[in-house]
């Protein structure tokens, strides 16, 4: 990871934590009792969900070593019609990692000759987050999580094709190269 990405990451994280601290200072000035209640509620929620969080991150580690990035690159590098698009949905769904890891990975796939639709589909189905499903179900209900997941998968291909349709046609450019 380049220094720029690390910096960007640090900035994002600090901004949120900083905002929350400022909000708490404000809350404290309005009502110390309510600020304490907020903190207690947050801590309680975090404690109750911590076991699942532990399990999820253990799973993320396992997926990281089991499904290699090279494998995904090789599967998506092929320019293979509907099968490629379906494959893109599947790859996006199992891909784990934050944007600053996924974007560089996908541009390498693109440079290997993948269609724009494949890139957009992976980014769409990447929001399925199957490893987070237990947590999502806990907060929003099992049905909510399930239906949302199904919709992500169903809408990924139409979305990807629409993005590609709006992108300039690159066939001539590739020929020139």
């Amino acid at each position: 990871m380049s220094r720029f990405h690390a910096f960007l990451r640090g900035l994002l994280r600090q901004r949120l934590a900083g905002t929350v601290i400022i909000l708490y200072l404000w809350a404290w000035s309005v009502s110390p009792a309510k600020a304490m209640e907020s903190l207690k509620y947050g801590a309680h929620l975090f404690a109750s969900i911590s076991v699942i969080i532990l399990a999820v991150f253990a799973l993320i580690g396992l997926i990281n070593v089991r499904i290699s990035r090279e494998l995904i690159v090789s599967l998506l590098g092929q320019n293979s019609g509907v099968r490629g698009l379906l494959l893109a949905v599947g790859c996006g769904a199992v891909l784990v990692g934050p944007a600053y890891v996924i974007f560089p990975l996908l541009i390498s796939v693109k440079q290997l000759g993948a269609r724009w639709a494949v890139i957009a589909i992976v980014l769409a189905s990447w929001s399925l987050k199957p490893q987070m499903l237990p947590i999502e179900a806990e907060f929003l209900g099992f049905h909510f999580a399930l239906v949302r997941g199904l919709l992500v998968l169903l809408l990924a291909i139409p979305l990807g094709l629409a993005v590609e349709w709006l992108m300039p046609n690159e066939s001539t450019k590739i020929k020139n190269n």
Binding site: I53, L54, L59
Partner: peptide, 25 residues
């Protein structure tokens, strides 16, 4: 795998704590 999981969790922990504090607010 364990190392990667632990590292990812540690990286995200400050953010998670901030989020849960925010939910409390």
């Amino acid at each position: 795998a364990i190392k990667i999981g632990a590292k990812t969790l540690c990286n995200l922990l400050p953010l998670l704590l901030a989020i849960f504090a925010l939910v409390g607010l």
